[in-house]
Design a binder for these strands. Structure first.
Lengths: 117, 117
DNA sequence: TCTTGACCTGGAGTTACTCAAGCCCGGTAT
DNA sequence: ATACCGGGCTTGAGTAACTCCAGGTCAAGA
């Protein structure tokens, strides 16, 4: 499929996809005879994963490493697994942060209520 | 207290605090006779709030608006309340995102396990 | 044929810091 | 008295990760 559809399906913007490809984050992107990018369903799966990793705060350098490992085949699965487990730990921390911030907001809002009375 | 202590207490870096002040995010910062910034406990409270708002993804422009409203006194409390409620909604969305990403990671890891068998 | 729409590249602009260079100032060790 | 810290100051450059834009190609439809 074309880049616009890949963008719509993955959640990434067209520009971001091109940028990610230039930075080596997307393996196996082929071009049609017209020189335009063609995305396979596997490409889109990959982009969707990148979208969520980004959305949850994975730095690009880590994604780059992840993509490089992927390009080296199945023997890098333990390494890739380690990266994802690490990221899952980050997610847990972020979740705690959100909860903590929520508590703070709740307290502030209570104070505002007092003032409004 | 001095800037380094304010940084340690709020979680923000010294550089970030100076930057935030320059951008108008911190009301009522006074200077000592030596020309150095002095932070009151209220300042530190404010900085801590900024720290958590930033940590949970509030853009600086919103913080700027929030600070400007704060500087205008109690009559802006409803507006400030609206900003915080809005941000709380964002927190809820981010929490969903984290959970969704966690699901994806879990599935990927299961696939990796299959390969490793 | 002409135009439209999707794609291309290269490069500039943006956000929110982050770091570094170079200077001032008060306190302590020699 | 002076040399040297550590901490603070400002200004300005650098970074990450996009994001947008100008200018150009090309296939397909009216």
């Amino acid at each position: 499929m074309r880049i616009s559809e890949a963008a719509a399906r993955s959640g990434l913007k067209v520009d971001t996809i091109r940028y990610y490809e230039a930075e080596g984050l997307i393996p196996n992107v082929t071009r049609g005879p017209d020189g335009q990018r063609r995305f396979s369903p596997e490409n889109v799966d990959w982009l969707t994963l990148l979208y969520w990793l980004r959305e949850t705060g994975m730095p690009m350098k880590v994604m780059q490493r992840f993509a490089a490992l992927y390009a080296q085949g199945d023997k890098t699965i333990p390494d890739r697994k380690a990266i994802l487990i690490d990221h899952a730990r980050l997610l847990a921390k972020r979740r705690d942060d959100l909860d903590r911030c929520n508590d703070i907001l709740t307290r502030k809002l209570e104070i505002y209520e007092m003032y409004l009375k």
